[in-house]
Design a binder for these strands. Sequence first.
RNA 1: GGCCCGUUCGUCUAUCGGUUAGGACACCUGGUUUUCAACCAGGUAAGAGGGGUUCGACUCCCCUACGGGCUGCCA
Length: 480
Amino acid sequence: MVSGKLTNMSTSSSTPQVVTRFAPSPTGYLHIGGGRTALFNWLFARANGGKFLLRIEDTDRERSTPEATAAILRGLTWLGLDWDGEVVSQWDRRARHAEIAHQMLARGTAYKCFSTQEEIAAFRTQAEASGASYAVFQSPWRGADPSSYPNAPYVIRMLAPRTGETLIEDQVQGRVVIKNETLDDMIVLRSDLSPTYMLAVVVDDHDMGVTHVIRGDDHLNNAARQQMVYTAMDWAVPVWAHIPLIHGPDGKKLSKRHGATGVEEYQAMGYPAAGMRNYLTRLGWAHGDMEIFATDQAVEFFDLKGIGKAPARLDFKKLENTCGHHLSMMENAALLHELDGYLVAAGVVALTSGQKDLLSRGLYCVKDRAKTFPDLIEKAHFMLISRPIVADEPAAKALDPVSRGILKSLTPQLQTVSWTKEEIEPILNQFVAQNGLSFGKLAGPIRAALAGRSTTPSVFDMMLVIGRDETIARLTEASA
RNA sequence: GGCCCGUUCGUCUAUCGGUUAGGACACCUGGUUUUCAACCAGGUAAGAGGGGUUCGACUCCCCUACGGGCUGCCA
């Protein structure tokens, strides 16, 4: 499933093609912020007829798990973000990373450093003790004569410029200038010959032909160091776009205490994927006043210019509202199919084929009013239950003796009417008129009888959906 | 500590030197009504603070405050 091989993805030189990538580390589920980063990359690639690649950054062997990779792929799939080509494993490419590190050595843009971790720690504590609040580590091996090299383990460090500044032309953040003196000679190859992230990410992005790096702005500072690697190798620097992170409702970085942080949790809560995509797209990106849009519209209009600079907070009310629009826009077949996925994700029992049949007949009267799948199921309750109907408390109150009497005298009149709204409606209107009732006095008990609930879709719709026989049976049962 | 980024209604945002600062969610009021939702009409609500630049700043510059990030042989 995950491969370190690279199929020929570099673009032919004549037609420069947009290539984006999402590169999560497999240490847990797909975070909602990661999901949005992936979404932006996907949208940008699709908007430009380019490719969206996926790479798993699994060089941290301690924390990377295959389960996490699987969870991330599931989350992306649920969000509808399809990637091009094979999933690349960064770990599988470690030989290539080491090769580049040695090329840097040969080019004189990197050097061997024999300082031990203890020596580095000592350097820092000493720097702090001597007043300096913090100091970037300066390796004594920088510029050392190779004849003085001991026979000991070493790391390969980038020979970073100590003066001047590095310019990041960021499509979201604008022009960012970082003084080189604040950057250290970062390690590119560890003493166990494994690559560090800073090296691997550049080598992989280059080899994969990535043209646009769209990622969280927690990487903005890293971009400067990574750009040095591109320069050291004479590689073309990609277009940078560092997008702000998502925050919780309180403005703090989104974390578990805010509730759901995993994409799959949102599936389990019953948000439709299209609504989730719409909401996440609008979170930090805007195209004028456009709020509700289908995914192909988002693809049509998405651009880097529309991305905002400030972190956005998650707003569940707006998420729900957006999802409500999408639920009502969805085709029945697609909706039913996704409903199945929700039931599995939520660990709820699947629907019987009988229930599905009724649902597809009656979806029209519930999908406009539901915001999430559990919401939809509650509103479709009358379609999913079978007799005897159990009334909840408010419904039971609506079935007092007087109301039962009303239902009892109504029922015979439904026996012969043709079963359309046009025919049923006059019968009920006539009935309330003859008995000096308000329509509400009749509708309440009907709701209770048919659905066992006090809030339901229109009584006409319910009658139509479950049919004459079932309607009469439920009314009879309730009025007994 | 140092460096980097950010700051428009409660929230998501529009605005790209001249607007009664617009839209959406949420909230409130009224209408419709068969409950809920929806819908229609209306309403409350914003440029963090302070200095500049300018005829004129939400918009450009500086400072402060607040929030976030980076500062690893993590990614």
